[in-house]
Write a protein that binds this DNA or RNA. Structure first.
Length: 286
DNA sequence: AGTTGCACCTGGCTGC
DNA sequence: TGCAGCCAGGTGCAAC
């Protein structure tokens, strides 16, 4: 499910409910998701006050008033929803709660529930001083909505890469937060082929090409529009309040194999790159 | 060192 | 209606 715009949408929903509240009770319903939960996970969280909820790449990071930071990743199918703790307790066997793996009951009376059918998500507790140097975070690239991201940054990051533009854009060590959908969308907006060599964004003298600038602007634009729309709702992904994001209606290329390109009338193609589907228009993406 | 392919899971959809 | 096969928003790791 979640790329940067979806994670940011979740962050905003959780921030409003969690920041300033204490974790009055935490329930962990299985020993692992993608990885085992930390030792004594619920116990270490109980009683902690949430001071801030941040996003880095596709990670959610809750700053606690103790010595640790709670790191959460949604994987492919993770989602959060917010209910009132006084409401019906999800009963065993209720279809909707089958994959509810963690619940946080807050001092405000709200209950935050983490649901993840595929269990590719995970949660981790990291001591604050070790946070920046932690393996999860010490090799993460620049934020595409940050001030330092532009055509020059793209050209510099990709200068010596031998992979395709598509694969390079998906590499979280270069740019943090892009995923399969928004890479396809940004490349289409920029009129660049996903098969083009990543290094071709720099001119021979190493300066950023006009293509690099176009691509950086397209990435910013598509991410900003998607965040404003509350992300994309594929399958049953929802925001924390249960509402659907609606950016999926704005996809111009993703999932449109066989349809006509809205910009040039060419046929949208689907190919496989690095094991993942790529959608692009052979007419206007060069 | 950088790049690619596979593995990890469940569920939804398509086509027989 | 049932079922096999394929596909899915991510990423860590082994193998080249």
């Amino acid at each position: 499910m979640p790329e940067l715009p979806e994670v940011e949408t979740v962050r905003r929903g959780l921030e409003a409910a969690m920041v300033g509240a204490r974790l009055a009770a935490v329930e962990q319903r299985r020993p692992d998701l993608r990885f085992p939960f930390p030792e004594r996970f619920a116990e270490r969280l109980t009683g902690q006050r949430v001071e801030a909820l941040r996003r880095r790449a596709k990670y959610l990071i809750a700053d606690l008033d103790g010595a640790e930071v709670l790191v959460m990743h949604l994987g492919m199918s993770g989602s959060f929803r917010i209910e009132q703790a006084r409401g019906p307790i999800p009963g065993a066997g209720a279809k909707n709660s089958l994959h509810d793996h963690v619940t946080f009951d807050l001092s405000t009376g709200a209950r935050i529930i983490y649901n993840d059918p595929r269990r590719f998500g995970f949660m981790q507790l990291i001591r604050r001083p070790e946070f920046a140097a932690h393996p999860l975070f010490n090799n993460i690239g620049i934020e595409p909505l940050g001030y330092e991201f532009d055509g020059a940054a793209l050209a510099r990051l990709f200068a010596r890469k031998t992979t395709s533009l598509k694969a390079a854009l998906l590499d979280q060590a270069s740019i943090a937060g892009l995923g399969n959908i928004y890479v396809c969308e940004a490349l289409h907006r920029a009129g660049l082929s996903p098969r083009r060599a990543a290094a071709s964004l720099a001119c021979n003298d190493g300066t950023p090409s006009a293509r690099a600038t176009r691509l950086a602007r397209a990435i910013r634009a598509v991410l900003n529009e998607a965040v404003a729309a509350g992300g994309s709702s594929l399958r049953d992904h929802r925001k924390t309040d249960g509402a659907l994001g609606y950016f999926q209606h704005s996809f111009r290329i993703y999932g449109r194999a066989g349809q006509l390109c809205a910009r040039c009338g060419g046929v949208v193609r689907r190919i496989t790159q690095a094991g993942r589907a790529t959608f692009y228009c052979g007419g206007c993406q060069r």
